[in-house]
Simulated scan of single mutants.
Amino acid sequence: MTDISLPAGNGLLGQLTDMGGPVMVVLLVLALIGIVTFVYLMLLGTLYAPRLPGKLKKTVTSWQQNPGGVSPDTVRREAGRWGRLNPLLHLVTDTMDALKNRQDDRQIRETAARDAQQALEPFEAPLKIIEVIAALAPLLGLLGTVLGMMEAFSAMAATEGRANATQLSGGIYEALTTTAAGLVVAIPFAALAAWVEFRLRRIHKIINSTLVSTLNVAG
């Protein structure tokens, strides 16, 4: 049996190159970028994702029942520092201010829609990065497979078809390893991208329903 164990002491990059060629290093870099992006996205979501806590929900209910009894300035002040990081709080209170000031109804709705879209924009770029990584990883794995098979057939051609297992195993091993590595990177990031997109859709629905509840008082 051919010995294809990794040489010791070459370092991580050297070992990855021995396992699957330069494509393995690229896949590792993509995986690291994806992990950093996902951690950033989670921190961003924890701090700045629009959310509807119970206190804000009660405020909207009180506003529907008695608009004159709700002061947007008081709502902002009582939200505290953590609460004021919530974009939905500002969307709701700004809409209340506009309604109290008797601004044009069409302008209020357009402003609310624009501000709602801006609240979700910071999450779109990280999501796109994760989606691109999920799409690129299997293609890179396929590229590694092609390069590995080319190496194997090149070795066979150099020996005029008399290549032994030792000469062929390196290229075949590289081909199989990069294919597997590409899938290992792509599958979890594809799942993460789908989960993040699902969360953003839910947040979008929460924003829409909350703003509609706030705007309907003007009717």
Rank of each mutant, 00 (worst) to 15 (best):
I4A: 02
P7E: 11
P7I: 07
P7C: 02
L16P: 02
G20F: 03
V25Y: 05
L27D: 02
V29W: 05
A31E: 00
V39A: 06
L41I: 00
L43Q: 12
L43I: 10
L43V: 14
A49E: 02
R51I: 08
L56Y: 03
T61M: 05
S62V: 08
Q64W: 01
Q64E: 09
Q65I: 10
W82P: 02
R84M: 09
N86F: 10
H90N: 07
M96G: 12
N101V: 01
Q103G: 05
D104H: 01
Q107S: 11
I108R: 07
A113C: 07
Q118A: 15
F123E: 03
E124R: 12
A125T: 12
P138G: 06
L143C: 11
T145G: 08
V146Q: 01
V146N: 02
G148M: 11
M149D: 09
M150T: 14
M150L: 14
E151T: 15
E151S: 15
F153C: 14
S154G: 15
M156W: 01
N164F: 07
A165P: 08
S169K: 12
S169Y: 05
Y173S: 09
L176W: 06
L183H: 05
L183F: 11
A193S: 15
A194K: 09
L200T: 02
L200W: 05
R202A: 15
S209G: 05
T210N: 10
N216H: 03
V217G: 04
V217W: 00
A218E: 07
G219D: 06
